[in-house]
Simulated scan of single mutants.
Amino acid sequence: MKKKILFIFTNYSTFVKTDFEILSEKHDVIKYQFKPVKGLLKTAVQFIKLKIFLLFNILKFDAVFIWFADYHSFLPVLFSKITGKKSLLVIGGYDVANIPELKYGSLSSGLRKKLTLFSLNNTSLCIPVVENLEKKVQEIAPKAKTKTIYTGYVFDLKEEKRLPKEREKMILTVSITNNRQRFLIKGLDRFRELAEKLPNFQFCIVGVNDEAKPLFNPIPENLVLLPPLNQDELTDYYLKASFYAQFSRSEGLPNALCEAMLYGCIPLGLDVGGIPSAIEKTGLILNEWDINAVIDFIQKNHNKFAREVFSNQIKGKFDLRFRKEKLLNLI
């Protein structure tokens, strides 16, 4: 039976858009954006708008679907609970992060933490995108009901440009970066340090805006900083690079890591968020940052693997059809 779903989000990212399209195939889905703004007054205005919308409209919906637990999830979960509507809350990583020294994560400040924990404990179901996030939810919100459903990919390998095994001595990472917080959260300081220690390899970061470039000073000669690229341009880099690095301090299920593996890059990562779920036994996973262990792995394994190993890992685990089937079964 076709149902009416209220779909609440802050930023209309690729993953959010994908879930909207999945649900819209079978149901009548209405979008509501809680606009991410800075400042208490502007945030209060967004709260008031959302409260008024829910007061007049919540009874029109059969279910509420929310991306991320944060300020914006509190009222939808509360109204759903009061009216007996089903609420589904996707957990992406930021919402269970707490790095106070970087002011990062929904748990990093008092009021925000309370609203986030209420959302986790009172929604009908939390849907973490990877197992490590489910464990985190269970630790911080014991009353929460959880079910992990991976985000997924449509594998359009028209460029199954036959994943060349022999590749340049290049190590790649992708991160849209415009400030110090992002620089540190994504571990780009570690990536820069690695470039200094491995001068015989080319290092490349895609997504660095001009205002963030001074964070890399002095820039090693073998480190290239590129702005955001379109998907075709980025795919060319995935196919050239031998390794892909994900040295994040906090992470959900990293999209670029999965894409890089799909195109045959050897993955390097830390046991943070969804990184180990993507890599599993196909590459390097460190429990903590150890630059010497990374250098040793790179020097021993450049062009040593059949690139299909990494591609098949992603295809077998993160096919979008799996998420589609599971989400639709929940409604």
Rank of each mutant, 00 (worst) to 15 (best):
M1P: 01
I5Y: 07
F15Q: 14
V29K: 05
K31Q: 10
F34P: 01
P36R: 08
V37I: 08
G39H: 01
L40I: 13
K42F: 15
K42S: 14
V45Y: 11
V45G: 03
F47T: 04
L50Q: 13
K60Q: 12
K60V: 06
F61A: 02
D62S: 09
A63W: 02
A63D: 02
A69W: 00
D70W: 13
S73E: 04
K86F: 03
S87E: 07
S87D: 02
G93N: 03
D95Y: 09
S108C: 15
S108F: 08
T116K: 13
L117F: 07
S119L: 12
L120Q: 03
N132Q: 11
K136W: 05
K136F: 03
V137A: 10
A141Y: 06
Y150Q: 10
L157N: 13
R162D: 07
I171Q: 06
L172Y: 08
V174D: 02
S175Q: 09
T177F: 05
A195I: 03
V206R: 05
F216Y: 13
P218M: 12
N222I: 08
Y238L: 07
Y244M: 10
L257E: 07
P267H: 07
P276L: 07
L286Y: 05
N303D: 12
F305P: 01
V309W: 03
S311D: 00
K317W: 04
K326L: 14
L327K: 14
L328V: 15
N329K: 15
L330N: 05
